[in-house]
Design a protein around this nucleic acid. Structure first.
Length: 650
RNA sequence: GCCGAAGUAGCUCAGUGGUAGAGCAACGGUUUUGUAAACCGUGGGUCGUCAGUUCAAAUCUGAUCUUCGGCUCCA
């Protein structure tokens, strides 16, 4: 057989490149251009991320990943995590390493550190050690583990029980070890790892450790309790600074912080955790959000119902909640009868449907309710308005025929689209399919999943599939929404239910006189008003659009002699249903402006001599500053239009 | 629920065993102000709660409640 001295590589654009055999990805990059080699980080080799220094084979398909490619961060962060682990083991001698994966914008590493509890100050010490290791220009070397038993023994000898456990698990999958070598080529540290990694620690230009927290080995609370360090790393200090600034901005928008500053809501020890008291401003905003919802749903064929907050346990026995939802329910006993505080609205809506016979002609029936439910949440999970124990769902249940339900799903998707656009929120859809422990046969699941998929496709929505992530009672579409800072929140959900129609024996009379089971759809668009409030507070950073603002205009008289005209302006605005007020305090104009800005009031109408003589107002817009003088009539007209159109400006 | 941290005036925070502080807000007065803070004065806290150690506890210890960062779970 002839020995080939060159191999042929297929590049991203399907062109071919001949390089000497034994070349690595880095050699390939150099062969293309030196500037490319400088920016190169790793490879996409036959569709898998690999080290840049991987030796290439004939006919390999290669895409060189540079620092400009978002995928390059995976190499960087994963490698920074290794340096973190090395640093921690250098500082805390008995520390054992668990796992250290890349997460969005960063990485973490889990450790078991006997006799030491990490505190934030430790992070500085660890960062220093990491920098020292980075400056040592340590090389990442990949080694195939030939003798797993020997390696296993070594891990056990070192007390690296987590690595040993992992190696044992992966021993038949060609496990690899990454060894870090110092400049002299001496191995100084290693980790069982699939990679890929960067070549040299000096490529880590900007990193920061962010926080410490607890975690469990394999996310199992019965297993070892570990200490986790979170960090982030970037290709340049500028990138890191930008990221940290973004974190600060997110912190400023935190709805819990703004909730206090703007007097939006409170919780109290006396009421208990996760129970929200809505103050007037946020209650007003909620009212606007609810009115908009009612209007839209009324126009789209929904009928509104009200149902009680408690029901006898009997109801929850029939629905099955008392079995599968037990840990989340609040129970009480009255007159020796057991009651449950409702965790969901569906059983009530089902009872309304079942309270009389239905003809196929009446379907679909759509019952909607802003239903307040209570769920016991474990004490550590509460979070401001976003995760609470008592919350109001914008709930609705659709009962329809099999031949209707695709259209019904499309109708719900349309509402989701309209509503999210109204708030300037982007979203993505996810289709969750049959889980392992599901009720209902394959046939009905196939039918339901196909229908959901058809609806999404026909609507023209992009979506991804979450295999086996559906509810046990049916598949679902979840909507993840993205706020102004690009953060993802769980929003709307559309779920099919095969469970309740069965348990409550739901029926309607078909054309041929037979009794048929309707298809039942659960859906919520805001999700929960509490969480939605949290989302829009953070999305708008407290600067609510005019139609949502509790106070829309504050009139600022310059001196007392302008009070009379200021009152006139206020009256004119109020007559046009514009929510206006006057700041008549004996404060300087600057002070009044400052307070209005702090309270995030959208418009300030400043009135002095010039304005009162000409029936004008000087308009100042929140955050934008002085807009100049316009006539009072024009001002009213412009505001009315902005309110009418529910405009948003971010 | 679990791991870790925190709780001092309405808010933000200082105060490491010896008489509880600041700024802002509030209140009273003076100032009548042109696009992000006028000036003077006054009041306000059993230091989350309960127990313990001590001559003496905001400060040390324990329990408990709440909050925060995560884990797990979820609208």
């Amino acid at each position: 057989m002839p020995i080939t001295t060159t191999i042929s590589i297929i590049l991203k654009d399907n062109s071919k490149k001949e390089i000497p055999s034994g070349s690595t990805g880095l050699d390939l990059a150099k062969a293309i251009s030196n500037s490319l080699a400088k920016k190169s980080v790793g490879l996409l080799l036959n569709n898998e991320l690999r080290d840049l220094v991987t030796v290439l084979k004939d006919n390999d398909k290669i895409e060189i990943i540079t620092q400009e490619d978002p995928r390059s961060y995976e190499f960087l962060r994963h490698s920074t995590a290794h340096i973190l682990a090395e640093a921690v083991q250098n500082i805390f001698k008995g520390a054992k390493i668990a796992i250290g994966p890349v997460i969005e914008d960063g990485f973490y590493y889990d450790f078991e550190i006997p006799d030491h509890k990490l505190i934030p100050e430790d992070l500085l010490k660890i960062e220093k050690e990491m920098q020292r290791l980075i400056d040592e220009e340590q090389k990442f070397i990949k080694i195939n583990i030939q003798d797993t038993d020997k390696q296993l023994q070594e891990f056990q000898l070192q007390g690296e029980k987590f690595k040993a456990e992992l190696l044992n698990q992966y021993k038949n999958d060609n496990p690899t070890l990454y060894v870090l070598e110092d400049k002299s080529g001496k191995p100084v540290w290693n980790d069982l790892c699939r990679g890929p990694h960067i070549i040299n620690s000096k490529q880590i230009k900007a990193f920061k450790l962010l926080s410490v927290s607890g975690a469990y080995w394999r996310a199992d609370e019965t297993k070892e309790s570990l200490q986790r360090i979170y960090g982030t790393s970037w290709w340049s200090q500028e990138e890191l600074d930008k990221y940290l600034k973004n974190l600060e901005e997110a912190d400023k928008r935190d709805h819990r912080k703004l909730g206090r500053q703007l007097d939006l809501y409170s919780t109290h020890e006396e009421t208990g955790p996760g129970l929200i008291l809505w103050h007037p401003k946020l209650a007003f905003i909620r009212g606007q959000v609810e009115d908009y919802w009612k209007d839209l749903h009324g126009k789209n064929g929904y009928e509104f119902v009200y149902t009680p907050h408690i029901a006898r346990t009997d109801l929850w026995n029939i629905s099955g909640h008392n079995d599968f939802y037990k840990e989340n329910m609040f129970y009480m006993t009255v007159d020796k009868q057991d009651y449950v505080l409702k965790p969901m609205n569906c059983p009530f809506h089902v009872l309304i449907f079942n309270s009389r016979r239905h003809s196929y002609r009446e379907l679909p029936v759509r019952f909607a309710e802003l239903g307040t439910v209570y769920r016991y949440e474990r004490s550590g999970v509460m979070h401001g308005l976003a995760r609470v124990r008592g919350f109001t769902q914008d709930d609705a249940h659709i009962f329809c025929r099999r031949d209707q339900y695709v259209e019904e799903i499309k109708g719900v998707i349309k509402l989701v689209d309209i509503i999210y656009k109204q708030f300037g929120l982007e979203y993505t859809a996810e289709l969750s399919t049959k889980p392992k422990d599901a009720i209902g046969g394959k046939e009905i699941w196939d039918f339901a999943e196909a229908g959901l998929e058809q609806a999404i496709k026909e609507y023209g929505l992009e979506y991804k599939i979450n295999p086996q992530d559906g509810a046990f009672y049916g598949p679902k579409i979840d909507f993840k929404l993205k706020d102004a800072l690009g953060r993802i929140w769980q929003g709307a959900t559309i779920q099919l239910d095969f469970n309740l129609p069965d348990r409550f024996k739901l029926q309607y009379i078909e054309k041929d006189g037979s009794q048929q089971q309707p298809v039942m759809i659960h859906r919520a668009i805001y999700g929960a008003l509490e969480r939605f409030a949290a989302i829009i507070i953070e999305h708008f950073a407290g600067d609510f659009p005019l139609w949502l603002s509790y106070k829309q205009v504050i009139v600022l008289p310059i001196t007392d002699r302008h009070l009379e005209y200021a009152k006139k302006v206020e009256t004119v605005l109020k007559e046009k249903n514009i929510r206006a007020g006057i700041d008549d305090r004996a404060e300087s104009l600057n002070a009044k402006i400052r307070d209005a800005e702090i309270n995030k009031i959208p418009y300030m109408a400043i009135v002095g001599d010039k304005e009162s003589n000409e029936n004008n107002v000087s308009v100042r817009m929140r955050k934008k500053g002085d807009l100049g003088k316009i006539s009072l009539d024009t001002f009213v007209e412009q505001l009315s239009k902005e309110i009418e159109q529910k405009l948003i400006s971010l």
